[in-house]
Simulated assay, not measured.
Amino acid sequence: RQLDGLELFRKATDSVGKVGVGNDFFAIGGHVALDNDRGGVVAEVLPPLIQVDGSSSEASTIRWLLDQLVKEVTANRPGAVLASKQLAQLLFIQIIRFYLAASEPLTTGWLRALNDARIAPALRLMHGEPGRPWRLGELAKQVGMSRTSFALRFKANAGVGPLTYLQNLRVSLAERGLREGAMSVSELAESLGYATDSAFSNAFKRKTGMAPKHYQSVFARMDESTSRHLR
Rank of each mutant, 00 (worst) to 15 (best):
A12H: 06
A158N: 02
G30T: 08
Y215P: 02
G22I: 09
T164R: 13
M183A: 09
A113W: 00
M126R: 03
G161A: 15
E224N: 10
R112L: 08
A199M: 08
N76R: 14
T226I: 13
T107H: 09
V16I: 15
F150H: 01
L69C: 08
D223V: 06
S191D: 08
R153E: 06
G144F: 04
F150D: 02
E175W: 01
L90E: 10
A151N: 10
L139P: 00
L169H: 00
A174T: 03
E175K: 15
A117M: 13
T208Q: 08
S184A: 12
F150C: 00
T208M: 09
P162E: 02
N202L: 10
L82T: 12
H127F: 08
V45C: 09
G209C: 13
L106A: 08
T13L: 09
L169C: 05
Y99W: 15
L192V: 07
G109C: 08
A88R: 00
E175T: 05
Q89N: 10
M145V: 04
I93F: 12
F92A: 15
H214L: 11
A83V: 07
R124M: 11
L34I: 06
G17D: 04
H229S: 12
L100R: 14
V41C: 03
L192M: 11
P212W: 01
R231W: 04
T61E: 12
P212T: 10
F154H: 00
V70M: 04
L139Y: 02
R118S: 12
F98N: 00
G137Y: 06
S198F: 10
V143T: 07
Y165M: 06
P133H: 07
L114T: 01
F150K: 01
V70H: 02
T196G: 12
F26I: 12
F98T: 01
S201Y: 03
A120V: 05
K71C: 07
Q51T: 15
R124H: 10
A203V: 08
E72H: 06
A102G: 06
A12L: 07
G29N: 11
A59K: 04
P212C: 13
S225M: 13
A211I: 05
G161H: 02
R153T: 05
T108Q: 14
